[in-house]
Design a protein around this nucleic acid. Sequence first.
RNA 1: GGGAGCAUAGCUCAGUUGGUUAGAGCACUUGCCUUACAAGCAAGGGGUCAUAGGUUCGAGUCCUAUUGUUCCCACCA
Length: 868
Amino acid sequence: MSEELGKVYNPKEVESKLYKTWEEKGLFKAEVNKNKKPFTIVMPPPNITGKLHMGHALDNTMQDIIIRYKRMQGYSALWVPGTDHAAIATEAKITEKMREEGVSKEKIGREEFLKRAWAWKEEYGGNIVKQLRKLGSSCDWSRERFTMDEGCSKAVREFFVKLYNEGLIYRGEKIINWCPKCKTSISDSEVDFAEMDGHFWHIKYKLADSDESIIVATTRPETMFGDVAVAVNPDDDRYKHLIGKRVIVPVVNREVPVIADSYVDIELGTGALKITPAHDPNDFEVGLRHGLSIINVMDESGVMNEKADFCSGLDRYEARKLLVKILEEENKLHKAEEIKHSVGKCYRCSTVVEPRISTQWFVKMNKLAGPAIECVKSGETKFIPDRFSKIYYHWMENIKDWCISRQLWWGHRIPVWYCRDCGEMTVSKDTNVTECLHCSSKNIYQDEDTLDTWFSSGLWPFSVLGWPEKTPELEYFYPTNVLVTGYDIIFFWVAKMIFSSLKMTSKKPFENILIHGLVRDSKGRKMSKSLGNGVDPLEIIEKYGADALRFSLMLGNSPGNDMRYFDEKVEASRNFANKIWNAARFIHMNIDGKNIKSEIPKDLDMIDKWIISRFNFTAKEVISNLDKYELGIAAQKLYDFIWDEFCDWYIEFSKILGKKEVLLWVMTNLLKLLHPFMPFVTEEIWLSFPHEKESIMISDFPKFDDSLVFEEDENNTKILMSIIKSVRNIRREMNVPHGKKTMIFIETDSENLGIILKRYESIICKLAYGKEIKVNKSLPESKFVAAVNEYVKINIPVDELVDSEAELKRLKKELEVSKKQLEQTENRLKNPNFVSKAPKEVINGAKDMAEKLKNKIAGIESAILNLK
RNA sequence: GGGAGCAUAGCUCAGUUGGUUAGAGCACUUGCCUUACAAGCAAGGGGUCAUAGGUUCGAGUCCUAUUGUUCCCACCA
């Protein structure tokens, strides 16, 4: 196949083929193996309704890089994939589809609905998993899980019952966030607040026994039907005399008391507040303190109910309009102020959330939060970057009880049965409870509600490893090593996993939490369906290849920060893949038919030592960056090394040197370093070269090797390179055409360098368009241009071509710059504080620099003299 | 109201524990189809690292304040 490598790398041809082979050979599988150290990542499960988006692509690329790296390092590296049932999102989609068919949930009933839901899951749940494969994700598909599979469901029941038995789960009537469209409760973190235009209506409430009025401000007049009091601050002098009196709720014409409660802010609004316990969480609290009754005036769809009198049957917003109109007509509306205020919306459907009194299940958070905070504070679990710890603490420290029951059908049903006879609850891990635990009555029924999606995903890291069973996998792979996820779900998910795991397994769920940002569009906007600015990763893969997409998502990306998506960036990465491809083609041309091993020969040339040493150093850096999860920096270093040093310099050198073993050795090892980032192109090339293992995936990741550090050769090669660059520079500036080869006169004080330069004469001449190198030889009668750098002075005779004026100007400018640099360096060295306090390397570096600059200046000065 | 991030080349962004002359991609200028690659090669232009102080021998990097900007949290009726 080696001769078959085309001129341009074609990802489409190789990607699906390679992925299939990897999967068939079982290379993604990780087993419990006592001879290896485990390394575990559990994939944040994408929703079954989902389609792969750029966020997934970023998230999974990062995970894949880490897991491939660890696998090559010899760990038993397990990456567990799976999907989430996404209760509310999925149910919404199914309901929507049913509506199109003219069917309703209520009409077909629970059982039939669930049948449809599972069918939906079967049909669409596999899509995203297929898409993850396109990206190259090397997860262990044999362990794929689903949040509603049997094991996860068992884990959910185990968790619920344990918390219930410890009194950490309770049922109660509270005011919760209600989505009138999804017709379910949602938790605090599922509410998005948005600034919206609205009105602040100042309404006159007349006293029952006098003509005096008290003005109350509200944004939601429709809730007046549920008013049970007007509250003022006890210290508010304006209203003190009214406390205990009764006022009449306008329009509704109900008498309610004026009460005093310190919750009321004197400064805010009018300082008087209408109290509607059924429709506002604060009012609810006030109501509790004062023993007020609760009047619920809306139904589950946000439609006014019979308590709303003539508004009954009206939507909440229509009722609001009508009330405002009537208040105006009755001259009860003192003022209508236009304001911007934040309004809570359902995070799934964006419907304005309605606070609603209802009976729900809650997790008591105070006892669970403490250990979860401690787990991060102690450093057991670390956020990367660390600043997210603060956000986490703040949230955890102010956490309120978690509403976990949902009025949905798609999800884990609450494992509680109520007895119609004795009224007691039976809470059980069993799925088919038939009699009351308390009175043995068979007249029982199960709670209709299901659990919050995040209740099951909170158990994900350990439930996928078999918990609550004591499996070998759980023993071996848990706790996991790193969780990779976006900052947007720290509250939803990360926090829940931490306290759930601590509670149920007594272990942290993961060591590190690697947080990434959002992938935004090229203008910095969030990619969203409504804006239509989303970029489909699959289309990008189709066009540029998975490697290119992956690499572009890594380049210039740093933990926790958002990034913008640009086609140009993917193009650059695609070009990079192509660059490597062509480097491979070049190597093939040279080793073809020859029995060359990828090894380091004994008699190494200076330039070989340079590239080996540089490779060795790059490997060290990349390993260090990967260990610190600095994937973007590692990618950048690989890019730079491969493109600049390996391709642009070493391959050019090797064309003249003619030694191919080192070329092959560096290449194969580079492929390994790069493999986690660009799995496909590296594998395809690696397989085309002599190789021992069946896949680069399971080859050994390069290690830093002390015996491969060649400092002197590195330096001398760098001087060689700087000379070539200088000559090229001068020729370019003097407009010397490539065809015109010139003599190169080099002056140096170093005998050793002189020998080296002569030895590499052919290389210098080839790469710098020279005819011959003369070291420290007297110059013939001719015109010269000079290139002076820190090491040598180079003279190039160019006779008729020299524009003396321009050359003089150029040299003078360079002289000036060098003198300035020397001055700065010398000033530093003169500073006694610098000499006494700076580390030796820095001082020596400065001294060295000063020497070099002096040489350079002397060289330039003599060149100027020469010109004259 | 509280908290956090960001501000570096025309654009998008890196810059790891402070250490010589601040980098990349794209864009720009010039010259090259040099038999791996024009998705390429070579040479080059372009930055007072938001502003003002401070710590330090030394600050893009640490501290304080200011400005601009983005985001998160919170029960502003």
